[in-house]
């Protein structure tokens, strides 16, 4: 009975992360080939910055995907747009107020998540449909509250998330890395993290072992909403201005990034670090597409096709014949 080497260098993990790492390297090389300015510190820094926001969105999506029961959160983009547009209206003159504002937007997101969780868990509405409908409700709500005119002035503290701490790494980038690392540890080592994966893997067995399946499932959606709320505020801090529906594209990307990062669509298996790597892949890809001046429509087509390919390699349904 040989013992396996330390957990983190586990062969399984390498197998999960390798595609993303290789893809990033390949894309960076391609980018350098296409444009001399691609591998500059400035450009890489901004790639990392955009990735950071997507990383948060992917973390949110990952939590829900791992929680199983065909979980997915298609309201991530809408919630992000909501807090991006409504967040700046909260006073953020002092650090204290800034902190409260963060809590407030996370609360808004959490409330949406709670409605999602309740509909999915208590009423049995499939997650895809519930969160998609919620996305429409949240977007409509945002439109109503802002009356089509988004906030103009942003607090300097909020804009400070883009500040460079050291070359290539800005405040938000470091925050994202810290968050992803911390959450990965929570997922693997703590009881609540492992409960999440167990519930996602086999909710029936989990229930029979005494785990609180309903509570954990609903909490997954609440967490996802809260993190999406946070991500939206960071987004507007980064871009400096708010536009209607600005974060809608993040929904698809968060799903794609999570899946590329090794998360199973049926639940029970996933990695936040993998999701973060997946986020980088897509941001680099998007950056290259922009360098190539590929129009928005074509970008969607490429992203969609890529997601289809990933889905068909990772996540196919059972064969009917054994």
């Amino acid at each position: 009975m040989a013992n396996k080497p330390r957990r983190t260098l586990n062969l399984d993990n390498i197998r999960i992360f390798l595609p993303s790492v290789l893809a990033v390297i390949a894309l960076l090389v391609l980018g350098r080939y296409l444009s001399g300015r691609f591998l500059t510190v400035k450009n890489l820094g901004s790639i990392l910055m955009t990735s950071s926001i997507l990383m948060f969105a992917t973390v949110a999506q990952n939590i829900v995907l791992i929680s199983g029961n065909n979980g997915i959160d298609l309201s991530v983009g809408a919630v992000m747009s909501m807090t991006a547009l409504l967040g700046p209206t909260i006073p953020m003159a002092t650090v204290g107020e800034f902190a409260l504002a963060i809590v407030a937007v996370m609360g808004m997101g959490a409330a949406c998540g709670l409605i999602n969780g309740a509909g999915i868990r208590q009423l049995g509405i499939p997650a895809l449909i519930m969160t998609l409908i919620m996305a429409g409700v949240v977007t409509g709500f945002t439109m109503y509250v802002t009356k089509g005119r988004p906030a103009i002035e942003l607090s300097p503290l909020l804009l400070g998330v883009s500040k460079t701490v050291f070359p290539m790494f800005r405040v938000l980038t470091l925050a994202a890395i810290a968050a992803v690392a911390a959450l990965e540890i929570i997922l693997r080592k703590t009881r609540i993290g492992r409960s999440l994966t167990l519930v996602g893997d086999n909710p029936r067995a989990a229930e029979l072992c005494g785990l609180r399946v309903s509570l954990i499932s609903v909490l997954a959606y609440v967490s996802s909403g809260a993190i999406a709320g946070f991500a939206g505020l960071m987004l507007v801090g980064y871009t400096g201005s708010a536009v209607m529906k600005m974060a809608d594209g993040y929904t698809l990307l968060s799903v794609a990034a999570a899946i590329i990062g090794g998360t199973s669509v049926s639940g029970g298996r996933g990695s936040f670090i993998g999701g973060a790597l997946g986020a980088i892949v897509f941001v680099v890809l998007n950056s290259i597409l922009q360098v190539l001046r590929i129009p928005e429509g074509a970008r969607y087509v490429i992203q969609g096709c890529l997601l289809v390919v990933i889905l068909l390699t990772n996540n196919r349904s059972q064969k009917l014949r054994q």
Binding site: G304, V308, L312, N315
Partner: peptide
């Protein structure tokens, strides 16, 4: 492919 996600990707 998963019905939900594949048609979601297709919609994009």
């Amino acid at each position: 492919g998963s019905s939900l996600l594949t048609t979601f990707a297709a919609s994009t």
